[in-house]
Write a protein that binds this DNA or RNA. Structure first.
Lengths: 125, 125
DNA sequence: ATCAGATTCAACCATGTGGTTGACTATATG
DNA sequence: CATATAGTCAACCACATGGTTGAATCTGAT
């Protein structure tokens, strides 16, 4: 593999960061599509859609086979696996109740500022 | 919720598409960090790191509380949940064996090109 | 041979991104 | 008070992104 895991993650997450591309992947779950079919739902030029397809291809999530004059795109979800695994490492940070942690940190706050006077600006934005 | 699910996904995936930001999140799993601490491991200006933090904040994955002159950042993994769920919908497309599907589609190819002569260019790029 | 279809290529444009730097604000400390 | 520390803001830069258009390519059909 020339491409590092990190680069692959960059490409996958970047590709998924656009709603047009997510919709294209969705569309591919029900079968292969050529470029025109993938482009059809969107109010943009064929070329613009074609670029989105290329981004998905770069990320490895679309494989293309050329049949005559049409380019048939097939979903390859494999690269998403890496993305899912990456995110999964953080699952405990939302699945566990964090209230206790919050509490603890609040207490630490108070300790850290123990011999100080004010109860000043502590939240913003 | 003003922000649509789609917009939230855009922000989350976009934030995760950068290795600096992923490393910052990683760093936050072991405790809160201020901006300087988050920036320290990277060979870039404090301001550049600060911008990365802002991107993570926009995606809701970092919450900031200002204590005196330092900005304390805390991980909030909740928004990742949506990203994980989105990807999870595609899990079956890589967890199931797809060889049979491949086979089937190859056959279809052959049928589609049945009465033709050549075995011309079928792969590219 | 001709014409229509599917798609890419190349050039262009506006905007976003990731980075820099210098000036500024606010807070902590001697 | 003076000075150092933590961060932001604003301007700037190079490059990527998402979009357009017009021409070119290749294939299929008449």
């Amino acid at each position: 593999m020339v491409e590092s895991d990190s680069e692959r993650l960059n490409a996958v997450f970047h590709a998924l960061a656009d709603p047009t591309r997510r919709a294209m992947l969705q569309s591919l779950t029900t079968g292969d599509r050529n470029i025109s079919e993938l482009a059809a739902p969107f109010d943009m030029s064929l070329e613009a859609a074609s670029k989105h397809v290329k981004v998905l291809e770069r990320a490895g999530m679309i494989r293309r086979s050329i049949k005559g004059r049409t380019h048939v795109c097939r979903l390859d979800a494999q690269p998403m696996h890496g993305g899912l695994e990456w995110i999964r490492h953080y699952e405990r940070f939302w699945s566990r109740r964090l209230d206790k942690l919050e509490e603890l940190l609040e207490t630490e706050d108070r300790i850290a500022r123990k011999s100080r006077t004010s109860k000043k600006a502590r939240r913003k934005r």
